[in-house]
């Protein structure tokens, strides 16, 4: 079975994307590239990357994109989310960052960004930017296992791949149980529930990306080489 590459947090960096594409071609059997959001950001002009993602080169591993926290901020600011605005970005980085973000993405990409899905379900895996609860949900290896289990249960999947925290880890919930005692008008009953084996995988962000083999469940955390010619691509 073909391996998956999981990437996030490119934030408009086409050089980095080309570097990752180059590395994927050197790997054997990587046929699916999932870009788990944050295609855009406020630091780079994002248009060249967006054009490349929308119209991939023939030799590219074909990308499939979902939206992330940065897309959510931009779409909210541009009126795609009802009354909400880019509140998260404003709070975290101030008004100037909102202006930078608006300047970094041409308006003719907005409809395409708005058409991106919240996540993919592939086999028994959910691929999501944050979590099933929210695109801004930051799951890490330190998040309570109770919360992680809830996020898995909401989607009824065995594995949840998340990108929002920009960390690379694999956390496995592998045993445990809980007693439930219910009393209602009909009487009382007791039951026990066991933990099914489930995992949450942080795929990293930016130069960090992850390869996954669904046939063997093998995960490989990778770091892309620094694209040496990365500078000079900003606002000109």
């Amino acid at each position: 079975m073909d391996r998956w590459a999981l990437v996030s947090g490119l934030q408009g960096d086409l050089d980095l994307y080309e570097q990752i594409q180059k590395e994927l071609k050197q790997q054997r059997g990587v046929a699916n590239l999932f870009v788990l959001g944050d295609l855009i950001g406020s630091q780079h002009n994002c248009n060249a990357l967006l054009e490349r993602l929308r119209q991939p080169h023939r030799a590219d591993v074909q990308p499939e994109c979902i939206y992330g926290w940065w897309e959510e901020q931009l779409l909210a600011e541009c009126g795609y989310r009802g009354e909400r605005k880019a509140d998260g970005l404003r709070e975290e980085q101030g008004e100037a960052a909102v202006g930078d973000l608006l300047a970094a993405v041409d308006a003719d990409h907005l409809n395409w960004l708005a058409s991106l899905q919240f996540g993919f379900i592939e086999l028994d895996c959910a691929l999501i930017h944050g979590s099933s609860a929210d695109v801004s949900d930051r799951l890490t290896e330190d998040t309570s296992a109770l919360v992680l289990l809830d996020r898995l249960t909401r989607l009824d999947v065995n594995r949840l791949f998340t990108a929002r925290c920009q960390r690379q880890f694999r956390l496995e919930l592998f045993s445990g149980s809980i007693q439930s005692h219910v009393k209602d008008h009909a009487g009382e009953h007791q039951s026990e529930q066991a933990i099914p084996k489930r995992s949450v995988i942080g795929i990293g962000g930016g130069r960090q990306y992850t390869l996954y083999d669904p046939a063997t469940d093998h995960i490989e955390f990778r770091i892309a080489e620094d694209p040496s010619h990365a500078s000079g691509r900003g606002f000109g």
């Binding site: 290896e141 296992a145 880890f169 956390l171 496995e172 919930l173 045993s175 149980s177 809980i178 005692h181």
Partner: peptide
């Protein structure tokens, strides 16, 4: 509903 004696074992890589 009472939820008791719950535990979760976790492995982190």
């Amino acid at each position: 509903r009472e939820l008791r004696q719950g535990s979760i074992r976790v492995k982190v890589q």
